[in-house]
Amino acid sequence: MSTKIIILSIGVLLVLIAILGNIKGKSDKGILSSKLVLSFGIIGVLMIIYGSYSSELINYNTQMEQVSIGNKLKIEGPVETVKVVSPIDKDSVDCRILTMGVYPKGHKKDIWVIIRPTDDRYYPQSDHTNTSYKRDGEWQVVTRFGGDLGEPYDLIIYETDASASSFFSATIAKWKEVDDYPGLQLAEMPAGAKEVERLVIYTRKNCRGVF
């Protein structure tokens, strides 16, 4: 029996004891004193709340993604274009990585990471159906792979306008809603998305079925 079930069970039991203990008999007195009834009731309710909360917390933690970072490219001199810093070309990576890069001062467009596995379809990457996070000349986004050990992927970086970003966000939201991720064909890629860099990377473990 798990700890959360024990906590919830004891909490329910204490609340029941408090309710039954407050029932008055012929002498017009409860089975338990008012102090005990109040104590059992409060402790029972708190245990039920704690048990319910810890249950949700445990379930959440078991589903948290384990994100790793690949090898990093050393950048020297001023940054003039959007560029990937990690992973590097021909890198072998885990199933979930943080793709990171840099962008030049004054850069206004959104940055999207798109992966193309061996099925020749394009999969926009996002933390919450949004663009890569940008701040102080650096950007990053969680990137997810679901292929076999050693499967090659094109990791493609796009600069996008607002229309293309909206298309990618809406596409991911639609896929999530039906829990089906068919990918995009090249002809479906929006006109406002411009490729700026492409790397080839490999999965260093079997990533099929990974959350």
Rank of each mutant, 00 (worst) to 15 (best):
V85P: 01
F167K: 06
E177Q: 13
V79M: 05
D94I: 00
P124V: 01
V84E: 14
G146Y: 15
S169N: 11
I111L: 02
A173H: 13
P182S: 11
K105T: 14
V178F: 12
R121P: 03
S86M: 04
K83M: 12
E177H: 09
I111A: 01
M64H: 12
W175K: 00
E188K: 02
D120G: 00
S126P: 05
K174W: 11
C95T: 01
H107V: 01
I172D: 10
G146P: 07
R96Y: 14
L155S: 04
D179K: 12
G146M: 09
P182D: 14
K90D: 15
V85W: 00
I111S: 04
R135M: 14
D148P: 01
V84H: 10
G70T: 01
T131S: 15
V102S: 10
N130S: 12
A170K: 10
E80L: 07
D91F: 03
D148T: 08
T99H: 06
G150C: 04
K74W: 12
D148C: 00
L184G: 03
R121F: 10
D120R: 14
W139A: 00
I157C: 06
D91C: 05
R144I: 05
D136Y: 14
W175I: 00
D161F: 01
V113T: 08
R144H: 15
T129W: 14
K134T: 12
E159I: 05
E80P: 05
K109M: 11
C95F: 08
K176F: 10
F168S: 03
L186A: 11
D179T: 02
P104S: 09
G150H: 06
P152S: 12
N71E: 15
L184D: 05
I114E: 02
R121E: 13
D154C: 07
G147R: 01
N130L: 10
E138C: 02
G150E: 13
Y123V: 00
G77Y: 04
V142D: 11
D94K: 05
L184H: 05
L73V: 06
K109G: 08
D110N: 11
V79C: 03
K90I: 06
P87E: 08
L73T: 08
D94C: 02
S163W: 12
V102P: 02
A164P: 03
I69C: 00
F145E: 12
Y103L: 06
D136Q: 15
D179L: 09
G137A: 04
G150K: 05
H128I: 09
G70R: 04
S86P: 01
V142A: 10
T118F: 13
I97F: 08
K74C: 03
K90N: 15
K176W: 15
H128Q: 15
K176D: 15
F168T: 03
E177L: 10
A187Q: 15
M100T: 13
E138S: 10
E159C: 03
D180F: 13
A187V: 08
I157G: 07
Q140W: 13
T81S: 14
D136E: 15
W139R: 01
I97D: 09
T160M: 03
K176I: 08
K72T: 09
D161N: 07
I69Q: 14
V113Q: 09
K174H: 08
Q140T: 04
E65K: 07
Q185W: 13
K72I: 06
I115Q: 03
I172A: 07
I156W: 04
E76P: 01
I69R: 05
P78M: 09
S166K: 13
D161R: 03
Y123S: 04
D119V: 01
G106W: 08
